[in-house]
């Protein structure tokens, strides 16, 4: 446990000591702030219209009008930003050779991987908490339902953790950070849009595809619904890629 904590602590410190973490976070917060601003302006405009049309006004609420579009936009930004956070996790150490030394210490591969994964997850969580500013602003000036906001954030957290697990895996395959980042981005994007093909591939296959879709599972979270199936999906994806990372490290020993 102390070994895990040492690795976790070092990684976390690295994130917050280096400029990259702050730049990544900064960009993330600026982009999501921009999304919040524009979505809110549109909502504002619609509200004025609704003032003249009572029926329309009934359909309008802060969750569907602001929070849902905001969270789904944030999920896209995560797709761009999380690979930047994960690409160095193992690739950098493999390149520098410190990873080889780490593997000769009496530390289990699992402790090393979990330390790194959880450090990235913690950094991501801090980033995500930063965006809570926007629902707080909404709460000051109005009263959005807290339930869907909470589940929406839970959904983002779970989705992010599966991205991070993917990123950890790709970072373990190469000693080139750029390759690790780009492949993570590619696969994560693929999982995000895999559902698009669903309408064209026949019934059974279509079901399978949409089961794999990151977006489909995110959808119910943003509506305020917690479905164990969706949670299972993200947790499974995360554990699956962490398991692959473990295997990949074992095999580097045999291959190199």
């Amino acid at each position: 446990m102390k070994k895990f904590t040492a690795i976790y602590g070092r990684e976390l410190k690295y994130y917050f000591q280096s400029v990259t973490a702050y730049v990544t976070m900064g960009i993330f917060l600026i982009l999501s702030g921009y999304f919040f601003y524009s979505i809110f302006r549109v909502y504002n405009f619609l509200s004025f219209q609704a003032a003249r049309n009572a029926q329309y006004a009934e359909q309008l609420n802060l969750i569907d009008g602001v929070m849902r579009p905001l969270l789904s936009n944030i999920s896209i930004v995560l797709l761009l930003v999380l690979p930047l956070l994960t690409m160095r996790l193992l690739a950098e150490e493999k390149k520098l050779g410190t990873f080889e030394l780490l593997l000769t210490y009496p530390v289990s591969d699992a402790a090393a991987i979990m330390g790194k994964f959880l450090a990235a997850l913690t950094t991501f969580t801090i980033m995500l908490l930063g965006t809570l500013l926007y629902p707080l602003l909404l709460a000051i000036f109005s009263d959005p339902e807290p339930g869907p906001v909470f589940t929406g954030y839970l959904g983002l957290f779970l989705m992010g953790s599966s991205f991070i697990a993917m990123g950890t895996f790709f970072s373990s395959l190469t000693n080139n950070q750029l390759v690790a980042g780009v492949t993570t981005f590619g696969l994560a994007l693929f999982f995000l849009i895999i559902g698009w093909a669903a309408p064209f591939v026949g019934e059974t296959f279509s079901k399978i595809l949409s089961q794999f879709s990151l977006l489909k599972h995110f959808d119910s979270f943003s509506k305020g619904v917690i479905d164990t199936q969706d949670i299972t999906y993200y947790v499974f994806l995360t554990l699956f890629f962490l398991f692959l990372t473990l295997k990949s490290i074992e095999s580097t020993r045999w291959r190199s």
Partner: peptide, 26 residues
């Protein structure tokens, strides 16, 4: 073990690094 290329965490301070290694070595 001292590997041939002597890989070190260049961003760490000396005692900080040795403390990190101490934890890892139990």
């Amino acid at each position: 073990y001292l590997p041939e290329k002597n890989p070190l965490y260049m961003d760490m301070r000396v005692t900080e690094y040795l403390e990190f290694v101490s934890h890892l070595k139990g």
